[in-house]
Structures are given as structure tokens and as C-alpha cells.
Amino acid sequence: MKELVLIIEDDKALHKMLSFALEQEGYKSLIAEDLKSAHRHFQVHKPDIILLDLGLPDGDGKSFIKMVRHEVTTPIIILSARNDEKEIVTSLDMGADDYVTKPFSMHELFARMRSAYRRASGLNSSSPILTCGSLSIDTQLHSAYKHTQLLKLTPTEFNLLKYCMLHPNQVLVHARLLKEVWGVGYQQEMQYLRTFINSLRKKIEDDPTRPHYIMTEMGIGYRFFCENSSYPKE
């Protein structure tokens, strides 16, 4: 099946390029240059994926996220300018699924789209064993392995890794990670997150400064990268 992508972007050069590249990749696409036509396209065509530029001529794209989330769980990916970390975090909190910053590579965008779409179509496995590359964890036994070798993780490190592995390829905002792993009230305690990510990387990464699993999204959060997770590729 060809998925329908709604591109909401007012820059002509960019949306032309996007729709061409999407076509090459096997998607169908629709273009909206402002919020008004975005609303119309959304109601009429029911797109499968939405690419949204936040700065539109007739208003703030965030209101559109709100409207969509009111009705459906269609994946929304933000196309953002740099220096907009606050905007990105707010949009993610409002229900956007992911983001790319301009200038972005098509490769990157397609990866984000695939993973967001997969998540939205509910293909998550419920097995207690999660694997990703050479890493695997058993959520019931509370044990983690790298190349079948048992990793000595502290309880917090384990919870952090577990949360990451349960949400692979997804942007995980700082505040959300802190809340989910440490608990409510810890959302601002960045130093915990930095310290534990650092120590976790030392245990799971081959080279902590060139991480393979836990990627940093500057000013926003982290992303657990997983090429061959237990999730089927379409």
C-alpha cells in the first residue's frame, strides 16, 4: 500500500523537492502551503503521515498538532529551523512524534517517517526480551547483555536502558526521560540524566564519544538508535 504524506510547508523549493523524493521512495504526497489548506487536506484525504513546518504564513503550526491529536494518532513529523529547541520540545509535548532540523538529509527524514509510522500502526512486540544490535535485555529478570555477556548495570542504569529500548528510534525529551526513569519531580534534574547516560554509554558503547546506540539530540533529549530491533521492518 502506498502511504499518503501530507506536506505542510510554505517554501516552494523545499516542498517540491520533498514531494519528488517521497514519490521516488514510493509514497504519495499532498502539499499544503498554509494552515487553511492543511486543515482542508487533512479532513478530505485523511493522510497517513504529516510533515509539518512550524512557521507558516497564516499562523502557528502547533495549533494544527493540537487539532489533529484531538481526532487521530496520525504520525506528525516537525520540520524545524535550528535554534528552535523550545518550539520543538513544546511540539513534541503537544503530540508530535518526531522532528528533523533544516537542513536535513532525505535519508534521515525517511528513517524518522518509517519509525513513526511503525509505532503508530502498533507493531510493538510484547515479549519480555528486547534486542537491539548486540544488546539485549530481559525486562522480567532485570538483566542486560552485550554479545551474550552479562552487563553490570545499576538499577537506575537498567531502568534507563529499558526505557530507551522500549522506545527505539524515538526522540526522548529530557524531561520525559527524567520523569519516566526517576519519577515525577525530577524533570529538571539534568545532572542525573547526564551522569547516568555517561556511565551507561561507557558500559554499552564501544566508543562512548562515537555512540552507536544512545544518540544525543542537542537541546532536546536523546534517541536510542536501533537498526534491527525486535520490530519488523515493512
Binding site: R194, N198, P208, T209, T216, M218
Partner: peptide, 14 residues
């Protein structure tokens, strides 16, 4: 300003 981890910063720079 916020708490930064140097290894992390180097990773992004690389």
C-alpha cells in the same frame, strides 16, 4: 547554561 557532559559534547561535535 546547563549541566554538560564533555564526552557527549565531543560526540555531537564529531
Amino acid at each position: 547554561p546547563q549541566w554538560c557532559d564533555w564526552e557527549d559534547l565531543v560526540g555531537i561535535a564529531l
